[in-house]
Simulated assay, not measured.
Amino acid sequence: MKLLAGIHHVALIVSDYPRAKDFYTRILGLEVLAENFRAQRQSWKLDLCLPDGGQLELFSFPDPPPRPSRPEARGLRHLAFRVAALDAAIAHLQAEGVACEPVRVDEHTGRRFTFFADPDGLPLELYETG
């Protein structure tokens, strides 16, 4: 029996909600499914749709503590997105002022990939699937 059918969503806590919303919607092009302000928590929750039907949730909370990521800390290492054309995706990000690391090649699959960061420094990856 297969217990899991796939990833439904990934949740991120952001430090600057308007900046993160702009980054994930305007720059990365994700569609807004729902946006709610939760007054009891003084928190925004933004549900975004990925092209494959998965979701990304953005949460804002008052004064969230920073999360260590470098040197690499235990926990989620990075979030990777599939892209058909890596060079075009990199050009789009760079035009928006988003720095990308040099392109690398996965030694096991031969696929090209690069890393960049969201406004909070969360490591994001673009992985070319063709």
Rank of each mutant, 00 (worst) to 15 (best):
G54N: 15
G54I: 05
H8W: 12
H9G: 07
G75T: 13
L58Y: 09
L50S: 02
I27Q: 00
G130K: 00
W44P: 02
L93E: 03
I13Y: 11
P123C: 00
L122P: 06
A73M: 10
S60D: 03
Q55R: 14
D87Y: 02
R74I: 11
I27Y: 01
C49K: 12
P71F: 10
E101M: 10
R67I: 10
I7N: 13
A84D: 09
S43F: 13
L12H: 06
E35L: 01
H8K: 11
G29N: 07
M1A: 08
D47H: 06
K45G: 00
Q94M: 06
V98A: 01
F115N: 07
L86Q: 08
D52C: 04
R67F: 09
H78M: 08
G6W: 01
C49S: 14
N36S: 12
A5Q: 14
R41D: 07
D16M: 13
D118N: 05
P102I: 11
T129W: 10
L124H: 05
A99F: 02
L56G: 00
F23H: 04
H8R: 08
A89N: 13
R38N: 15
L76E: 04
Q94L: 06
E31Y: 03
G110C: 09
K45P: 04
F81L: 03
Q55F: 13
L93D: 02
E101Q: 11
F115S: 12
G97E: 12
Y24C: 00
R41L: 07
E128R: 02
L124P: 02
R26P: 03
L46Q: 04
D118H: 03
K45D: 00
L56N: 01
I13D: 10
A11I: 08
C100E: 10
A39E: 13
Q55K: 14
A11S: 15
N36P: 02
P65K: 05
L33T: 00
P66I: 07
V83R: 02
G29P: 02
H8I: 01
A20M: 07
P65T: 07
L48C: 01
R104L: 14
A5F: 13
S15D: 06
S43P: 12
A91Q: 11
R74D: 06
Y127A: 11
E35P: 04
V32F: 10
V98H: 03
E107V: 15
L28N: 03
G53K: 09
I7D: 14
R26M: 04
G6V: 01
D120N: 13
R38H: 15
I7K: 12
E107M: 15
D63N: 11
P66W: 09
A99E: 02
R82D: 01
V105N: 05
L46C: 13
Q55N: 14
G29C: 05
G6C: 00
I7E: 13
I27R: 02
L86N: 09
A34N: 15
L12I: 09
G130I: 00
G53N: 05
L124N: 03
D106E: 15
C49D: 04
L122S: 11
P66C: 08
F61Q: 08
G54D: 15
M1E: 07
G29L: 06
A99Y: 03
C100N: 09
Q55C: 14
G54E: 15
L86E: 07
A117P: 06
I13H: 11
F37E: 09
Q55P: 10
R111Y: 07
A85S: 15
D52T: 03
